[in-house]
Design a protein around this nucleic acid. Structure first.
Lengths: 339, 339
DNA sequence: TTGTAGGCGTTATCAT
DNA sequence: ATGATAACGCCTACAA
């Protein structure tokens, strides 16, 4: 006989059955509101359950039913407002359907992400993967074994995997177009991390500005965090650009902070733009112009995709959201370059 | 025979056992690196497992072993940077021990929190509860049935429940003391939500400033979010205070934004302070003076508490962290009141 | 309508 | 060192 290391004895369906003088099957039916159960018996069972403070074991139930009512999400960094919004959207949408969310953060390590994704997926019924840095080929190999899975913030390199993409190019073009309208002829692009899908997409857009009137782009290596933007100040000023197009809002806020400390007027001396539309962008001083991505909505849509697979309903279409340009005080007319 | 609704047939330990020509027990031993297994057999088993791409069912394993290797965290709002930091600290610390984290957010609804906490706890081995608004009496009733549980950001109303508290009073006193030093005689306190433990603690501290030289405090009802601070601008100015002590950083950033838009100089005309020390405080313009709380560390400490219970090791002591005053550009000397 | 019993995939005890 | 086999706690097809 297996004596497992449970401390106190848990109250099981058997106890309730005995107390109510019925079989376990009947208790199960009552607890799940199934079939037609004699009202009197139902009452007795519920009473016994209440009395004993019984609650079914989700683990045993998961084993018997073959599903956990849980989905996982893997993100590079739980400290990033963007991923937080995705998580929140996912969590609330899933909760409405009685599902819970397991989180895993890879500490920005794409290799770790592979392991985490596999592991997280095995514990759950489905997976949301936010992995902007993972190599496309690797991702293509990995995805099939993770199904059901939905990819957020990038397109899937393989068929059959729902993805919620962001049209980073459109966002960048909207930003550049506005800056161009304001007379900017030379822009600094504060680049995101190497290997980032989103950074690649932004760069592609910047390199394909077909308009002959398009401003010149000077690329400044930077990163994806506050500190990266903060440290990039001198490099940005050295470019002689009249506007800084930042990889994301965090970088832009960092840059704004550094410029502010240096007493450099924004947008008088230099305009600054971000990307993502995090909550804080609006409350920066000056308020940050950005291309806003509805990450919370993406989290909700991710749930919708998973749900349609889990309930084998009509598969929802892939979605590519176009960022919305939010023009705020951090951009203004280009100042005269005194070169 | 029960025919459950599993789609494709999962590869189980039995398949591996058959393929390797051994018993399931042996496969189990090999997979868990247990006991002394004949090296040759071990090799054969691993090979078969590899071949079949076998991975053990965590659910079945949980049922057999009586633990899930998962802990839950319940927070009022996953969108709040403070709770995100706690989550991140918890998640990374737990991950190091091979545990995963299940999240639940109550959408700021304390009643919902009770249900969520119970439900989340049942799915996991332990629980972290961040519930600043729950009534103490209710909390006291609830906690015993949730054990093992650790409370974050407030003290436990009952014995035996580890808690990680924040000395909000000390933080407030440090802030007020600094403002007093700068010559402020009249402060506006932008109050947090009614019923919030942290707000109560701050108010208590404000009402017990014993120093005869202490500034006068004018309470302004506000809230806990950006928007609340943003909207409070006029009310704050109407108090005639030379400094605004905000419930938290979000409120302070909102207020800063409104003041900036209104062209009101900070700290020239009015000083502003926050609380919590969220990342963004540093990068606001002007950089926000705040009482910094190491939420990420609290998340890690929460894990440590849970772990010591789960591994019945020495129970760690309760912890009360003292916020660290971060003086930044948002405070300055009191201006002359022209009343 | 209710009960019986087998199975979900592991782990762990007890023989061998 | 390995193999049967009984739990773990629940669900469900089938019989009554």
């Amino acid at each position: 006989m297996a004596r497992t290391a449970h401390g106190g004895r848990r109250i099981t369906i058997a106890h309730v059955a005995e107390a109510a003088g019925v079989s376990r099957a009947t208790v199960s039916r009552v607890m799940n509101g199934l079939a037609t159960v004699d009202p009197e018996i139902g009452r007795r069972v519920r009473e016994a359950a209440e009395q004993l403070n019984y609650s079914p074991s989700t683990v045993a139930r998961s084993l018997a039913m073959g599903r956990t009512q849980t989905v996982a999400i893997v993100v590079p960094d739980l400290g990033n407002p963007m991923f937080q919004d995705t998580l929140r959207g996912l969590s609330r949408a899933a909760a409405r359907a009685g599902y819970r969310v397991l989180v895993a953060d890879s500490a920005e390590n794409p290799d770790e992400e592979i392991i985490l994704a596999r592991e997280a997926r095995r514990r759950c019924d489905a997976l949301v993967l936010v992995s902007p840095r993972m190599d496309s080929a690797v991702l293509g190999q990995l995805l099939p074994e993770l199904a059901p899975v939905v990819l957020v913030n990038r397109e899937s390199p393989v068929d059959g995997v729902p993805s919620l993409a962001v049209d980073y190019g459109a966002g960048i073009r909207a930003i550049v177009s506005e800056l161009q309208r304001l007379g900017h002829r030379r822009l600094a692009y504060l680049a995101g991390p190497d290997g980032s899908y989103g950074n690649r997409a932004r760069l592609d857009a910047l390199h394909h500005l077909l308009d002959a009137e398009s401003p010149e782009i000077v690329e400044v290596p930077c990163g994806a965090m506050f500190e990266d933007g903060y440290r990039a100040k001198d490099a940005v000023l050295a470019t002689g650009a009249t506007a800084a197009v930042c990889f994301n809002d965090l970088v832009a806020l960092g840059l704004l902070g550094a410029l502010h400390e240096a007493g450099i007027d924004v947008p008088g001396r230099i305009s600054v733009t971000g990307f993502d539309g995090i909550q804080f962008a609006r409350f920066a001083s000056p308020a940050l112009t950005t291309a806003s991505v509805p990450q919370t909505q993406l989290g909700e849509e991710a749930w919708a995709r998973l749900w349609s697979v889990l309930s084998d309903a009509e598969p929802a279409d892939d979605l590519t959201v176009t960022p919305r340009l939010e023009i705020r005080a951090s951009v203004g007319p280009a100042h005269q370059v005194h070169a």
